[in-house]
């Protein structure tokens, strides 16, 4: 993985955001910050006695892109169904956009776009007629602007050309795009996207990522569930991790990363000298390799390390800040059995 200056800059910030650590379920948001989704003790026990979601305490800050991670069957979709009032929780409370649910379902869900467990449309209707149908179901949607809104939503997901085609004839990727378009029919304050890139080709996946970032930049909170860590790592500012119905971690992505040590690696022929310089800077965990030396960077700034190496007369062939990937973090958090790459 190549390291950009941006990454180094971020790494320098890490110590500041480390305070609360990655503690499971710790809410370390700025006091007074608004939360788009809050759940407390949300639990779903199905008739069979199986506990799908166990005492879930989620806190999704407004304006965040919140990755909701977990292996298949860990309770992500059941949680999303509960948030939307489709499934009644056995215990617990939740709020969407500050409104207590499920009492507020009617008023709040108009401001929430949702993609739940894959696309579902009427096969004998065109893409446009399908969106019109869902728009008609929303009591607060303005019928006068429906054509404009549908046109914009279809354009945004790149389906404008296929608007008149029957859904039956859509490919899997087009169906997924249409489902995303359905979440964009009105002004939304919160998007809940369950596996939005399922069935999309790499290009489509990239477009969806771009779209999510664009929507987030407009101020919409995006809650996106996925089992693809790399995808979440590229999109999200915050994450929560589920495992067998329980929340094992939650917080800003940088905090979670901070639980794994950031290391600095120096490529040099002068291994001994470089190690001495790093030790002189007080960096711990120095490891000598064949032509390289690495150490835990901790709060140290990479540029300072670089300067010290140069003034110390060490021939530096390469310098890299190695930040742990989300995958490293999750393997650490959840142990084996997590399908890290879906």
């Amino acid at each position: 993985m190549s390291r950009t200056p941006t990454d180094a800059g971020l790494a320098a910030d890490v110590p500041g955001s480390r305070v609360g650590g990655p503690g499971g379920g710790s809410r370390r948001e700025v006091p007074g910050a608004e939360l788009s989704i809050v759940t407390s003790g949300l639990t779903k026990r199905f008739g069979s006695g199986q506990v799908a979601v166990d005492a879930l305490d989620l806190a999704v800050p407004s304006g965040s892109v919140f990755g909701f991670l977990g292996p298949n069957g860990s309770g992500k979709t059941t949680t999303i169904r509960m948030l939307l009032g489709l499934v009644a929780p056995t215990a617990g409370e939740w709020r969407l956009l500050g409104t207590p649910m499920p009492g507020g379902v009617g008023g709040v869900l108009s401001r929430v776009g949702a993609l739940v467990e894959g696309p579902a449309f009427y096969p004998y209707l065109s893409g446009e007629a399908n969106l019109r149908r869902y728009d008609a179901a929303d009591p607060s949607a303005d019928p006068r602007t429906v054509s404009t809104r549908i046109g914009l939503a279809l354009e945004r997901v790149g389906l404008a050309a296929a608007a008149g085609k029957r859904y039956r004839a859509y490919s899997l990727g087009m169906r997924q795009r249409l489902a995303i378009a359905a979440t964009l029919l009105g002004p939304r304050e919160l998007l809940i996207l369950d596996e939005p890139t399922n069935g999309l080709d790499p290009q489509g996946t990239r477009e969806v990522r771009g779209l999510v970032k664009e929507i987030a930049a407009e101020g919409t909170t995006v809650f996106v569930s996925s089992h693809l860590l790399a995808e979440v790592e590229q999109m999200c500012s915050h994450v929560a991790v589920m495992r067998t119905g329980r929340l094992v971690a939650q917080g800003p992505i940088a905090d979670l990363r901070a639980s794994e040590t950031v290391r600095i690696r120096v490529e040099t022929p002068d291994v001994e000298e470089a190690a001495a310089v790093l030790a002189g800077l007080g960096l711990p965990e120095i490891r000598l390799g064949d032509g390289d030396v690495s150490a835990a960077l901790g709060a140290g700034l990479p540029e300072r390390v670089c300067a010290a190496l140069v003034t110390g007369g060490v021939a530096v062939r390469g310098l890299a800040v190695q930040r742990p990937t989300l995958e490293d973090v999750f393997v650490g958090l959840t142990g084996e059995g997590f399908d890290v790459d879906g």
């Binding site: 169904r81 939307l84 009032g85 489709l86 379902v105 009617g106 869900l109 108009s110 929430v112 949702a114 739940v116 467990e117 579902a120 869902y134 728009d135 179901a137 929303d138 009591p139 359905a182």
Partner: peptide, 9 residues
């Protein structure tokens, strides 16, 4: 599920 999430009520 999409009609109810719309929310159709």
């Amino acid at each position: 599920r999409y009609l109810l999430a719309a929310p159709a009520g």
